[in-house]
Design a protein around this nucleic acid. Sequence first.
DNA 1: TCTGACCTGCGA
DNA 2: TCGCAGGTCAGA
Length: 268
Amino acid sequence: MPELPEVETVRRQLLPLLRGQRIRKMALTAPGLLKNCEPAFFESALQGQTIVNLHRRGKYLIWECRDLFPVFHLGMSGIFLKDRARSLYPQHIHMSLELENGGEVFYQDFRRFGKIWLYREWPQIANLGIDPIEETPDLADFAGLLARKKQNVKLFLMDQSQIAGIGNIYASEILFEAAISPERNTASLDPAETARLYRYMLEVLNAAIERFGTTYSAYQTVSGESGENQNFLKVYQRNGQPCVRCGAIIEKSTLGNRSTFFCPDCQL
DNA sequence: TCTGACCTGCGA
DNA sequence: TCGCAGGTCAGA
């Protein structure tokens, strides 16, 4: 379940492999992943292109080539690998890339929730809110976002049109650190709570990036390693275990059709 | 605003 | 064998 820290880890690890390299061959074997062109066009258009840079906005990974911009959303289980032998699901490798320097990169996605687009110009991704790491808002801007729409605070954090990049794992962890119940409405947060939410949104995301993301289910880094952040989760998937802050038992509930994990005693 | 569909691996 | 996991989007 790649969220912002996982996609940023992928971007940082792919960058030295791809930047400045020319694509010798691109092969795509799952046509359903492609959303705005045909596989044959995708493959031929990218052949011979030089990759200039890699960018990330929210959970989207944007490859900047000389004349084209392939865009990847990793969905629930998409990963990039530099070594096919490290794949846990080689039957689900759906894209292979050969570079002129002999390097290779593979895209694996066993659930096939990932999506790929090809644009001729810098892609304008519709309805994408502020990226909290790339375009960090100041506290006043963040408070303005919160005030703009009265909604559940966890759904606000996960609303990609408001804050781009946070998914279910980090929303639960941010709310725990901020000691705010996932049941709260954004309109009910006082200035101190808003400041805590802002502070821990940045701290939780940055810490997860430093730890190469959270490996839960299929996520692997580009080199095939696990992330490390799963060892630091305080509520996600910890229902039934004691809260590290107050000792109460972590609970699990459903909110917006998603599992939500929280401490009933110290998240108010 | 909410629900179901997409998809497959995994654990009960 | 079945339910769950979850990001996104279409449709109700």
